[in-house]
Design a protein around this nucleic acid. Structure first.
Length: 273
DNA sequence: GTGGACTAATCC
DNA sequence: GGATTAGTCCAC
């Protein structure tokens, strides 16, 4: 068994850990463009790294009065981002309609009441900046309140529905990855326990063979006792007449005791001593 | 394979 | 009834 198993530190995420970061507090409700560090990627802003922008956004988010009323500047409005990486918001029409407007990717599109388009779905690729901000926000709030969603959508020039879908997918895929980690851990645990079971079975068989062995009944005065090592839980033979010279049970016929005496490399795991 | 988007089911 | 999840499609 790989000793790395000992380092397996499964941090099972509680499915409800979203509640650890309450979505609502400290989220920006002020949507004044002048206060939004990400709203304009013009001029010097383009020279800033995504990390700088994230830091700006973070400080911005944390500096907002949560109780201030929301100033929503038409969050459904789709504004073309100036960033060369920016893409137009996807459109949310029925499947089958989505191929109709391939040539119009760079234009804003008509939308229905829900912020969705009626022209058919287009594939959105988030810009690095958008993805970075979404990721950073997700680290703090893995679910968004409606106000948070609106604010973030406005900031990133996305539709609230897109932000919502992004968070849904993010949660789903993180959960999927966590499930894979869990499965891997359980598989290793199963292998470990199988191996442990095999070893114990062998010890049982050895002890049974020992019991049936003629040697077991020789020199039985004083009585031989089996004791279990509290550390490794292996059974050892002890007897007042036992000696390393073989007066008692020969180590050759007592593999358990022999194993205990021998400086055998012990399988190390957190389940064994 | 990744990730944005959708629908249906489920939860609260 | 709105929010979320599970499952899925499919553009890239």
């Amino acid at each position: 068994m790989d000793e790395k198993d000992d380092d397996l530190n499964l941090s099972l995420r509680c499915p409800d850990n979203k509640n650890l970061d309450p979505p609502t507090p400290n989220f920006p409700l002020n949507l004044m463009k002048s206060a939004l560090p990400f709203m304009h990627y013009h001029g010097n802003d383009l020279l800033k790294s995504p990390a700088d922008r994230i830091a700006e956004t973070r400080s911005f988010f944390q500096g907002i009065d949560v109780n201030r009323p929301v100033t929503v500047i038409d969050c459904e409005e789709v504004v073309m981002a100036s960033s060369p990486n920016s893409t137009v918001s996807s459109v949310c029409g029925k499947r089958g309609e989505r191929e109709e407007n391939d040539g119009e990717r760079a234009t804003s599109s008509l939308e229905d009441d829900d912020g969705g388009d009626v022209e058919g779905r287009k594939k959105l690729r988030l810009s690095k900046e958008q993805a970075a901000v979404l990721e950073e926000t997700f680290k703090e709030y893995n679910t968004l309140s409606p106000k948070q969603k609106l604010a973030l959508a406005k900031e990133l020039n996305l539709r609230p529905r897109q932000v919502e879908v992004w968070f849904q997918n993010r949660r789903a895929r993180i959960k999927l990855k966590q499930t894979e980690v869990d499965c891997d851990y359980l598989r290793r645990r199963c292998e470990h326990l199988t191996e442990e079971n095999r070893r114990l079975q062998k010890e049982v068989n050895d002890l049974r063979a020992l019991k049936l062995s003629p040697h077991f009944y020789m020199n039985t005065n004083p009585p031989t006792t089996l004791t279990m090592c509290p550390q490794c839980e292996r059974v050892a033979v002890s007897s007042s007449s036992y000696s390393a010279t073989g007066a008692g049970i020969s180590r050759q016929h007592n593999p358990v005791a022999a194993a205990h005496q021998r400086p055998m490399p012990m399988p190390v795991s957190k389940f064994q001593c």
